[in-house]
Design a binder for these strands. Structure first.
Length: 1087
RNA sequence: GGGCUCGUAGCUCAGUUGGUUAGAGCGCGUCGCUGAUAACGACGAGGUCAUAGGUUCGACUCCUAUCGGGCCCA
């Protein structure tokens, strides 16, 4: 016996039980243990940050990350899944600041760095419980207990090793560069971080006069959207090849790009045509070297020439005046230009964004807020020509949205990634990306445009940059581990940590490699006697942390055993994250791995170099998930259901299946509950119905797969077809999953379950309903059971809960020696010998005929209840006729007709159309293709068909008197039903109904109507299935006669023991109508 | 402003090196089934494959431009 299955299946409740079973029986661990020693399938978990709540977008990532490791485990691979947590960086600091109600860097310092990083460390795992619960409930199998954590000492030391390696190779350098600077936060941001904070804003845009030193009546006109940078002006730039004009307006003269004259004077009370007189045109290069008066004289630029015109290629005529104000402290182009041209440098804004004391008028004020007053001052001094508003995208801090970023020249640390551009591209070229276009598109372009990695952050909670600097000489060295540091000569400062630890024993050991403790450690300088080495103050970009995970998760190379672990777990076979990681994790992984491990002779050993690709071979790039309204998931807009809500209503499998089967993973999905419910009906519930059907009848008949009497039965053709479909499905699913294509795999499974439910079970029902047991019935049970059993393992990686439900009841309960969980089974192998391709094709034709027959009935308004005398079938290809003869009874039953025949006079019903097979003739005949098509269309199709049948080829006359010879390969014969018949046409077959109804057929139809009426009554009165009834019927002719004629049939179908026909049931009966005849009916339960 | 990507039925999405009747599910309509049953099934309507050009014997598919959405970057 199988366990009874409830009519209403409760997915969530069953999943909860299965979770308990997995946990108590330790199934995940067993699934790993039994693959120990097998070929590894290496998976890297991209570490999420657990300081926020997980949302539905994380479900997609986690489901994709789960399905392939599960699949590979079942196909015989050892797939360890180590979880990880990203714990450092600005996001964490930002959250803590929000709670403390503080904002600026200074406030953090006042609060105390020691207390602050302690809070950071504690906040990191605030939502761990929610994350772990999501992971568990979704059935994502991963080792949470053994997760790597980026703040752990061993992890930090691995990162130090990487940084020290880069430093010693000269790839880590300190440079003075213009970076995107967050003044309130006191740090630079990486390009990735900056990109997240762009917003459209209105800024002032002003056009100002720079008067020529030797001719105060003449001014250069320059344009800027950052007035606060004007006090730090060093030069003006012109394009050497652009035409500039000197124009006279009123009593003064201006110099600007000629092309921009109308635009610049627009909006001013001058008419460019009348009031502006052009007094000379010259190339920009002739202006180079001209000196001008600065707008402000708070300080003079130092270190080079200043306040003169230079030439620059980046000057454009898109906006402005064609003359660009240059402030090397506040623009990347400006800074570079200043270097090239030997210009001086002037920076009148402090790192916190306020003007320095030298700027007497605005000292201490935040630069961007001073714009208005600066403009006023310019107006008062007569320098302002025009003021407008300019709408553009401008970056703000991604964590503190009110803080604008500014471009700011600053000393910071960089990794010389640009030196590896070609290596990055070579490595990338070997990676299997899904979708493919990522490789040469977004990711490839990004690599090609590589700029040096701005690595350092002048912040607190991050991996400290392991570089110590000689206080006297400024010489630096990198340290690759804590032990290496402590081994330095004359080390001191460790007592700071020890004291803190004594004061608070709860302080976790890992903090000792963090600020502020690490900063206290100094040692004797090897570069100058008596001098000390002190750590530089910076921490690093947390993206570098996560990019180190391939080795840092093992504490490589310091932790004992880490070398072996790393060697055997590198590179990853599979990673997956959403597309926003292109410049995030995907890049940092690839960049760090390429720089550290390169690609040389693989024989050189795993520690120095590895063949590309690494550190990952296959990468699925997921689309971004949107809310129900198609917009970004948003907590405040509540445009999505919480994952937990879905788990409680539809269940985790439903969510998993919907995400896996609904679309290709790189399509952005809209997260909607009703889509999940629909996908669940389409697959899980349909499959459940088949499963339930099987269990009900197998139990009634006492059938068991373990029964010795079972097995070895001759399978019917329908059975063999279903088994062929099953094996083909397994083969297709495997092929798709081997290519990391979950979506086609799921579509194939949906098709299979549909065929199983809507053709195999439907067409086999009466075999199961027969009383008693016989070989044919056993064959049906055997077949259906085998399909369900195989399905349970095939679907296990996708819907692990439901697969377990099927497996436990269908397999485990019958075979106590079977593996205790479906997830300990091997993935099914297709049995090629049972894939009868001919049969698959043939059944497709049969199903098509049935479908066409139904369509013809609908068209002729002949419901299936009304039996018909005959259908005739016309085949395009007569070769099918012989085998099809064996299936005619099935078709007759499906279509409720007395006879199915092949049309003897096919031409009465159809015309034959001979069409070219373009694929076949296209390459051979090229330009003649249209002529052939036309010639075929003109010809008599039936004649062509006969000739082809007889000779195996046809000679076709083309217009120009030429002729071509076509074989059967070159054409396809199609059918077209002639009008006037109740017929439906398909590409290879036409089905014609005989619509003539004899009195006998009509009577039979009426009898079935009566059965329908009675059954409806049974259902409405909720009678038990086996309840016997008495029926009293008041019906006119011809209904009464039909009932008499089919009395036996009606009684059998409705379990009626007493059927009477009476007159005058007027009041007592139930009024109905059959084919326009009024009918009254009384139904009584007998037993 | 640049790069990438998408635009296919009312909705959500598939569509395999270019091959001539472009598919599915939902929704809608019609019907069926009533021993899988508060389910289920069949059939149908619905498409200028965003627009305009181009390449080709042939374009949803390749190219160019435009429009619109998304992402990334400036």
């Amino acid at each position: 016996m199988f366990k009874e299955v409830p009519a209403q299946f409760n997915f969530p409740a069953t999943e909860a039980e299965i979770l308990k079973f997995w946990e108590s029986a330790d199934i995940y661990a067993k699934s790993l243990r039994q693959r120990e020693g097998c070929t590894p399938f290496v998976f890297y978990e991209g570490p999420p940050t657990a300081n926020g709540l997980p949302h539905p977008g994380h479900c997609l990532t986690r489901v994709i990350k789960d399905v392939f490791p599960r699949y590979r485990t079942m196909t015989g691979h050892y797939c360890q899944r180590k979880a990880g947590w990203d714990t450092h960086g600005l996001p964490v600091e930002g959250e803590v600041c929000k709670e403390l109600g503080i904002h600026t860097k200074r406030q953090i310092e006042e609060y105390g760095i020691e207390r602050f990083i302690r809070l950071c460390q504690e906040s990191v795992f605030r939502y761990t419980r929610e994350w772990e619960e999501l992971t568990r409930r979704l059935g994502f199998w991963i080792d949470l207990s053994d997760a790597y954590v980026t703040y752990r000492q061993s992890y930090v030391e691995s990162v130090w090793w990487a940084l020290a390696t880069l430093f010693r190779k000269g790839l880590l350098y300190q440079g003075h560069k213009v970076v995107w600077w967050w003044p309130q936060g006191g740090t630079a941001l990486s390009s990735g971080e900056v990109g997240q904070g762009y917003r459209e804003v209105d800024d002032p845009s002003i056009t100002v006069r720079f008067r020529l030193r030797d001719d105060p009546k003449t001014s250069f006109l320059a344009w800027t959207t950052t007035p606060w940078t004007l006090p730090s002006n060093v030069a003006l730039a012109v394009h050497p090849d652009v035409d500039y004009a000197r124009v006279e307006v009123g009593g003064e003269a201006f110099i600007l790009a000629r092309e921009l004259i109308p635009a610049v004077f627009k909006g001013l009370p001058v008419d460019p045509a009348r009031d502006v007189r052009t007094a000379g045109v010259f190339k920009g290069c002739t202006l180079v070297g001209k000196a001008y008066e600065p707008l402000f004289r708070y300080a003079e630029p130092a270190g080079g020439r200043f306040w003169e015109v230079v030439d620059a290629d980046f000057v454009t005529l898109d906006t402005g005046t064609g003359i660009v104000h240059i402030a090397p402290a506040f623009g990347e182009d400006d800074y570079r230009l200043a270097r090239e041209k030997g210009l001086g440098f002037l920076q009148l804004v402090a790192p916190d964004g306020t003007f320095v004391p030298a700027v007497t008028d605005f000292a201490g004020r935040f630069c961007k807020e001073a714009d208005g007053d600066i403009i006023r001052k310019l107006k008062d001094s007569g320098a302002l020509l025009k003021r407008e508003q300019y709408r553009h995208d401008y970056p703000f801090c991604w964590r503190a949205e009110e803080d604008p970023l500014i471009q700011y020249a600053r000393k910071s640390w960089f990794i010389r990634t640009t030196a590896f551009r070609d290596a990055f591209l070579a490595n990338n070229a070997r990676i299997h990306w899904l979708p493919e276009h990522i490789r040469d598109g977004r990711f490839g372009n990004f690599l090609a445009d590589n700029v040096d990695w701005a690595l350092s952050r002048e912040r607190f909670w991050g991996t400290p940059l392991p570089i110590w600097e000689c206080e006297r000489t400024g010489r630096q060295e990198a340290v690759a581990s804590y032990a290496e540091l402590l081994a330095k000569r004359g080390v001191s400062g460790t007592e700071v940590w020890e004291q803190a630890r004594r004061a608070d024993p709860g302080l976790i050991e890992d903090l000792k490699v963090h600020k502020p403790y690490i900063d206290a450690i100094t040692y004797d300088s090897p570069f100058a006697p008596g001098a000390r080495m002190r750590r530089v103050p910076e921490v690093i970009d947390c993206w570098f942390d996560s990019g180190c995970m391939p080795f840092a998760q093992w504490g490589y190379p310091h932790v004992p055993g880490s070398r072996e672990l790393f060697a055997s777990r590198f590179p990853a076979d599979f990673i997956s994250e959403a597309i926003d990681q292109t410049r995030g994790w995907f890049y940092t992984l690839l960049a760090i791995s390429t720089m550290l491990f390169g690609e040389q002779d693989p024989a050189a050993g795993p520690e120095t170099s590895r063949p590309y690709p690494h550190p990952f071979r296959n990468c699925i790039v997921l689309g971004l998930m949107a809310g129900e309204d198609g917009k970004k998931l948003s907590k405040s807009k509540r445009n999505y259901r919480e994952p937990g809500y879905i788990f409680d209503r539809e269940g985790a499998d439903a969510m998993r299946w919907s995400l896996l089967s609904g679309q290709t993973p790189w399509t952005g999905v809209r997260f909607k509950e009703d889509v999940i419910a629909t996908d669940q009906r389409e697959f899980l519930i349909k499959l459940y119905n088949v499963y339930s059907f099987f269990v009900i009848y197998a139990n009634i008949d006492g059938w068991s797969p373990a029964d010795g009497a079972a097995g070895g039965e001759a399978l019917s053709e329908l059975d063999r077809w279903m088994i062929a479909e099953l094996n083909q499905t397994v083969a297709d699913v495997r092929a798709a999953m081997d290519r990391f294509e979950n979506h086609p795999a799921c579509r194939r499974l949906v098709d299979f379950v549909d065929a199983l439910s809507n053709w195999y079970v439907r067409r086999s029902r009466e075999r199961f309903w027969r009383t008693g047991m016989d070989p044919d019935k056993r064959a049906a049970y055997r077949t259906l059971w085998e399909c369900l059993r195989t399905l349970s393992t095939t679907i296990a990686p996708f819907v692990p809960f439901f697969a377990e439900t099927l497996y436990q009841n269908l397999v485990r309960s019958q075979f106590p020696d079977a593996p205790e969980s479906v997830h300990l089974c091997d993935y099914p192998q297709p049995d090629e010998s049972r894939i009868d391709r001919t049969l698959l094709t043939r059944m497709a034709v049969v199903r098509e005929i049935a479908s066409l027959g139904r369509a013809a009935r609908t068209e002729a308004r002949l419901k299936v209840r009304q039996p018909l005398a005959e259908v005739e079938i016309v085949l395009a290809d007569p070769a099918h006729q012989a085998w099809l003869a064996g299936h005619l009874p099935l078709i007759a039953e499906e279509l409720n007709v007395k006879r199915v025949e092949f049309a003897t006079e096919a031409e009465r019903y159809v015309r034959y159309l001979v069409r070219p097979n373009f694929k076949s003739i296209g390459s051979r005949f090229r330009q003649d293709v249209p002529a052939i098509k036309e010639a075929l269309a003109r010809s008599d199709g039936a004649a062509l068909r006969d000739r082809l049948e007889r000779d195996g080829a046809i000679d076709l006359e083309l217009a120009a008197g030429r002729s071509v010879r076509l074989t059967g390969e070159d054409v396809q014969i199609a059918l077209e039903a002639r009008p006037g018949w109740a017929a439906a046409q398909g590409p290879r077959v036409v089905v014609v109904l005989s619509t003539a109804l004899t009195d006998e057929l009509k009577a039979e139809g009426l009898a079935r109507e009566v059965v329908h009426l009675i059954q409806t009554q049974r259902k409405n009165r909720q009678l038990a299935y086996q309840a016997r009834i008495r029926v009293t019927l008041d019906a006119p002719e011809p209904v009464a006669a039909a009932v008499e004629a089919h009395r036996r049939y009606i009684c059998d179908e409705t379990l009626c023991v007493d059927l009477r026909i009476v007159q005058g049931l007027a009041e007592a009966g139930h009024a109905e109508e059959i084919e326009g005849h009024p009918v009254r009916l009384r139904l009584e339960v007998v037993s």
